[in-house]
Design a binder for these strands. Structure first.
Lengths: 188, 188
DNA sequence: GTCTATACACTGATAGAC
DNA sequence: GTCTATCAGTGTATAGAC
């Protein structure tokens, strides 16, 4: 199994989260991954765009599993979501406010310049939203309400990450965590 | 007064919103603004970073005034915020989902690479948040609660813009609008 | 103040030896 | 499959004529 390919992908995932799409050069990728440029184009003939799409897909799945796993550890939907967001806040802080929101930057950068990457991000966001929605449906809250609420939670998290990284503080996400818990308990 | 300087700034504001920081080249700026490169470095000796900082500052003030103005036209805080967010959704749609969130992309791109631009974005976000908070304080809601809630609203808007542009739909922001109205009415 | 020409590093991408 | 050398183009920034 090609570990070279995996290393390139892992490096790309990291750099996209840290710097975004346009700030990440292929030379940096091959340097940090230790793989030569020849291998990069051997494994990803589509170049930077194809490599980015696969990297996004990979990190999207990792996060999806993290969401599902975390939400399953706590029974109460409100407390589960709250705890999950608090956890993100801690991770963002732990990275020195350099990481967090692995697809956020790329989503904005490519929303109107690359349909391939935009659709990749859209698919990931949809799956994340569905994962939240699954935790929020109940006899009192029909699927449509749960899905809409899940979208609001996702938006607040993404925006909260932006504010945390910009202000170098956990507060925005912590406030989001509390607010979302309130919102979940009010749903019907 | 120098309209050349203004044209460069206006063009930069637009391009930063559409494409972000790293995707916007100085050559494109001078081409679209009609000003030569000599003028650019005459007015902005600090180069791209200084030009971007001033552009962000300008667009930040424009939006700040828009927030204040809009919130003043409706008495009920919940309805005012709701209406404001619905308005953003319409504007994002009207741009073909190419614009919206004039500092969002740059904030993420430069959060860990340029302290100058990061601090510029931080200041803008703080002022926007304060503007929302001013509308939300009341005898029942102390300033601290209002300020925290304003931060959540700001985060949900920023994230909602990302989801709208990525999915090419107004729905995420419309759901955010409804949710924020509920949240405001529940505050204490 | 305005503009052109250009310096020099770096970009994504390719060719071809091994 | 792996690697190097290199392409053509673009990036930011500067020098200097006018």
């Amino acid at each position: 199994m090609s570990t070279a390919r995996d290393q390139i992908l892992d490096t790309m995932c990291e750099l996209l989260e840290l710097q975004g799409y346009h700030a990440t050069g292929l030379n940096q990728i091959i340097k940090e991954s230790g793989s030569p440029k020849g291998s990069l184009y051997y494994y990803f003939p589509g170049g930077k765009e194809e490599l980015s799409a696969e990297a996004l897909s990979r990190v999207g799945l990792v996060v999806l599993n993290r969401i599902r796993q975390h939400l399953n550890t706590i029974d109460s939907p409100a407390q589960a979501v709250r705890d999950f967001i608090v956890n993100i806040a801690h991770n963002v802080e732990a990275s020195g406010y350099r990481a967090g929101g692995p697809i956020t930057t790329v989503a904005m950068e490519t929303a109107s310049s690359s349909d391939r990457l935009r659709l990749e991000c859209q698919g990931i966001y949809t799956r994340w939203q569905d994962a939240f929605a699954a935790k929020l449906s109940s006899p009192d809250a029909p699927d449509e309400v749960a899905h809409a609420l899940a979208g609001v939670i996702l938006a607040a998290i993404e925006g909260g990450i932006i504010l945390c990284r910009t202000s170098r503080s956990q507060k925005p996400l912590l406030n989001v965590a509390d607010a979302m818990a309130i919102l979940i308990d009010q749903r019907r």
